[in-house]
Write a protein that binds this DNA or RNA. Structure first.
Length: 415
DNA sequence: CCTCCACCGGAACGTGAGGAGT
DNA sequence: ACTCCTCACGTTCCGGTGGAGG
């Protein structure tokens, strides 16, 4: 019988019990260390069960601090309690990164509120005020309380007036536009300063209640991971050190719980690929490397050419054995790189800003320090994972960089 | 203690691309 | 087709800055 490509992998006993338990979309039964945040939401949303309008809310916190999970968790209980008590309560969650215009958000809300009898709102074509009127009419017809969750709301607000308009419309529903129904808006954002981008009128309506989610620390992340691991991974598979290490590594990344889960999941996958029955810290290290590679590759690929040239200049100096490179040294190399690329060099002022940009992107570190007599300058070092070939990534995404890198090796061979 | 280097980084301005309105 | 507006990217100008070395 002919062998099949998939036979080998299928015969390996999986180390997972239920892989989904380690995914981002999984809704766990309890959320460790988010008690305060949960009760802030519950204390406000309980008004819905009493037949009143809850206040609008804003939730802030770094990625992976549990904002979305807490909101889903609370809304799920709110809806089921509402059903038990005979109140009509409905939560509509929309991710503004995917649904990113006023029209599409309103259409999405309208369609989720639709009965069989209602007309579907098309993807495009209707005037925005007609869509809004349908949303309003459907809320009123259903009655009760409608909780609108706008996840990653900063994406919408950053686009300018669009977000302002939408929030103004939604928050105006409770001021006389609805009869016998209420609407409550919960905005979720990574950016504490995002309300400053809003129209002041919208600001005051939207944020009577702000909840800030602090990042998890390492031991809290362990508490997040353990129940998920128990559910998702077979017993006796994990070394004792694995979960603490995943937690510690993720705690360094701003306490990102998603990162911790990714690390754990990929570690187990790595162990499976290596066909071993036990996951150890070496697999976590491999997972960490893979995540870093996956994260940094697109960042470097998408850098504009000038920024790639600056990064190239830093890397070249570092490959020559230098550390704590100064802006002047980088600029010198950069001018040569520009010549090889056939580009006109930017001013040193601009390059200084580009260096800062690379610093903020986490590709290099640039600390401004004084060198005494030798003036103020930055001390620049790359912070790429050890085995990461940034030159290769830049060359494959930008043909001119081949010239630049090639010229450097020709020069080196001549010396 | 003062000087002075070599750059920092804010501010104002110029330019061209792209979108909205008419 | 046209104006107007916004935005990102760059330049020019310039006052600041911290500490090694006189």
């Amino acid at each position: 019988m002919a062998s099949n490509l998939f036979d080998g992998l299928l015969s390996v006993r999986s180390l997972f019990r239920d892989r989904r338990a380690l995914g981002h979309a999984f809704n766990p039964d309890n959320l460790p260390h988010r008690g305060e945040e949960i009760s802030s939401l519950v204390n406000n949303l309980v008004e819905a069960l009493r037949g009143h309008a809850p206040s609008n809310m804003n939730l802030y916190g770094r990625p992976g601090s549990g904002k979305t999970a807490v909101t889903r968790f609370v809304c799920r209980d709110l809806e089921s309690k509402g059903a038990a008590e005979g109140c009509n309560i409905r939560a509509v969650e929309i991710n503004c990164r995917n649904v990113d215009t006023k029209y599409r958000v309103l259409a999405e809300i309208g369609n989720r509120l639709a009965d069989e009898a209602d007309e579907m709102i098309p993807f495009t074509g209707w005037p925005a005020d007609k869509v809004f009127e349908h949303v309003r009419a459907r809320m009123q017809a259903r009655g009760g309380v409608h909780v609108i969750v706008l996840d990653e709301i900063d994406y919408l607000v950053r686009k300018g007036k669009e977000g302002d308009d939408l929030l103004y419309s939604l928050t105006s529903l409770n001021i006389g536009l609805l009869d016998g129904a209420f609407c409550c808006v919960i905005g979720i954002s990574n950016d504490l300063a995002f309300t400053e981008m809003l129209d002041p009128r919208v600001q005051s309506r939207l944020s009577p209640i702000d909840v800030v989610f602090p990042p998890y620390n390492a031991s809290q992340l362990e508490d997040v991971l353990r129940p998920r691991a128990a559910r998702g991974i077979k017993e006796g598979v994990l070394d004792e050190a694995v979960i603490p290490l995943c937690a510690a590594l993720a705690a360094k990344e701003d306490g990102d719980a998603r990162r911790a889960l990714d690390l754990l999941r990929i570690s187990v996958q790595r162990a499976e690929q290596n066909e071993v029955q036990r996951v150890g810290i070496s697999h976590v290290r491999q997972a960490q490397n893979q995540l870093e590679f996956d994260q940094i590759t697109p960042t470097i690929q998408n850098l504009p050419l000038q920024q790639k040239l600056v990064l190239f200049s830093v890397i070249v100096n570092e490959n020559n054995g230098l550390t704590n490179i100064s802006t002047g040294e980088v600029y010198g190399t950069y001018e040569m790189a520009c010549e090889n690329a056939g580009e006109k060099p930017l001013t040193s002022r601009r390059v200084s800003s580009l260096i800062r940009g690379l610093d903020m992107a986490g590709i290099i570190t640039a600390k401004t320090t004084s060198r005494g007599r030798h003036g103020m300058s930055k001390r620049i070092n790359t912070c790429l994972p050890p085995a990461f070939d940034a030159l290769e990534v830049m060359c494959s995404s930008e043909p001119v960089m081949n010239e630049v890198v090639g010229a450097r090796y020709r020069l080196q061979n001549r010396l």
